[in-house]
């Protein structure tokens, strides 16, 4: 029981680590956001994203929690259900970076201070 499950797990984890990679450096220049980094300011009742359009490729969201509660940042697919990427556990006063490779299409951004989803807004990625 031990050896096969151990190796299966190790192989599975290794595969994930190799295939589940996203380039950390955003593709600068082509993005409509300055410097390729989109800033998000999360408060108790708002989730302000500095740009609502960007070019496809690697995008970094720098999420700053300006509220009182620990927050989360979500990038949702067009159906507002599937999670494209998320950053959990952003303490009040702290920031966290979320880098994601985005294909052209319609997305939604949202924050979750104290577990409640707020400030859902459209986010467009153009080819």
């Amino acid at each position: 029981m031990k050896t096969p499950s151990r190796w299966t797990a190790a192989a599975g984890a290794a595969t994930l680590l190799l295939t589940g990679c996203v380039a950390n450096q955003p593709a600068g220049g082509s993005s409509t956001a300055a410097g390729g980094v989109i800033t998000v300011t999360a408060k108790a009742d708002s989730c302000a994203v500095s740009a609502n359009t960007t070019a496809s490729g690697k995008v970094t969201f720098r999420v700053t929690n300006a509220g009182e509660a620990t927050t989360e940042f979500y990038l949702l697919a067009a159906d507002r259900l599937r999670i494209v990427a998320e950053k959990e556990d952003i303490a009040p006063g702290a920031f966290a970076d979320l880098t994601v490779a985005l294909a052209p299409g319609q997305y939604f951004t949202a924050c979750k201070p104290g577990g409640t989803k707020i400030g859902e807004a459209e986010f467009t990625v153009i080819g």
Binding site: T19, V22, N24, A85, A101
Partner: peptide, 13 residues
Amino acid sequence: GAYGLSFESQEII
């Protein structure tokens, strides 16, 4: 490093 871990992989791990 040059590459980060995607959201899905992190959750699957």
